[in-house]
């Protein structure tokens, strides 16, 4: 099992957001996490990636056989956990190229490898840029600075392609994307899908799941997963909304 989350409780500034969440993800699987706003979807992503101030008060996150509750975010990243940010951060003055190379070499160093040769790096950049259809100009600019919403999201997928994670979490990657950009993002993800990696796709809408077809769909409500099913569940949600699940839950 690649990811195994057991009875996870997470609090921010003492306020409990996740209230006993369970989730298992195997290699080769795509899981969709859906649910209304404010149910803790992004908190889950933050907890898995080790964001500060997201305190795990109870439970365990086991990744690749190891409990990672207290692990630094960069170590988690180097072990293969990637987060596509809902709001990618701008880092003025740091070029995309420099940023990417630093990240790749950090990973290689972590794995006891030599730094990537310049030629190989550039080749890989070119390849992956094509995959997500991003302009060469963008990689010359500073990280996310002045990127449009769509460009930022494509850039996240581009970075994912470069870093080849084992577990990729896509946090609302579809928000703010037009249909063409959405297709590009989905194509990127689908090409990277393999039996060696897994995806957790967090989304509010069913729309993205038309293009990235999940193996499992989970519905989150009030800090827990309250319903799980196959991809059919997404269609059901599309039709009926969340209320029927919430009503069941509240009863």
């Amino acid at each position: 099992m690649l990811l195994n989350i057991k009875n996870l409780h997470v609090a921010i500034n003492g306020k409990e957001i996740l209230k006993g969440l369970n989730l298992s993800v195997n290699k080769g699987e795509v899981h969709a996490i859906m649910g209304p706003n404010g149910t803790g979807k992004s908190t889950l992503a933050a907890a898995i990636t080790g964001r500060e101030n997201y305190d795990i008060t109870k439970g365990e996150i086991i990744y690749d056989g190891e409990t990672i509750n207290d692990m630094a975010p960069d170590i988690r990243a180097n072990k293969g956990i990637f987060l596509s940010f809902q709001y990618p951060v701008e880092i003025p003055g740091v070029s995309m190229t420099n940023f990417m190379r630093t990240a790749i070499n950090a990973q290689r160093e972590f794995n006891g490898l030599e730094a990537i040769p310049a030629g190989e790096f550039l080749k890989k950049m070119e390849e992956m840029k094509k995959l997500v259809d991003i302009n060469t100009k963008l990689t010359k600019r500073s990280v996310n600075e002045g990127f449009s919403g769509g460009e930022k999201k494509k850039n996240e997928i581009f970075q994912m392609a470069m870093l080849e994670p084992k577990l990729a979490i896509l946090d609302e990657t579809d928000s703010g994307l037009d249909i063409d950009a959405l297709k590009v993002v989905a194509r990127g993800v689908n090409e990277l899908r393999s039996t060696d990696n897994a995806f957790v796709v967090i989304t509010h809408y069913q729309r993205l799941l038309d293009y990235i077809v999940p193996d499992f769909v989970h519905v989150m409500y009030d800090g827990r997963i309250v319903k799980s099913g196959g991809k059919g569940l997404a269609f059901e949600l599309e039709e009926k909304g969340y209320d029927w699940i919430i009503d069941q839950e509240d009863e």
Partner: peptide, 26 residues
């Protein structure tokens, strides 16, 4: 936010600061 973003990409804290500071002074 910036530090976490770098760390999430596998860059450790010290390097991340170096990177951001150099960007700031660029």
């Amino acid at each position: 936010e910036q530090l976490f973003y770098c760390q999430q990409r596998g860059i450790d804290m010290e390097k991340a600061i170096g990177l951001i500071v150099n960007g700031y002074a660029k």
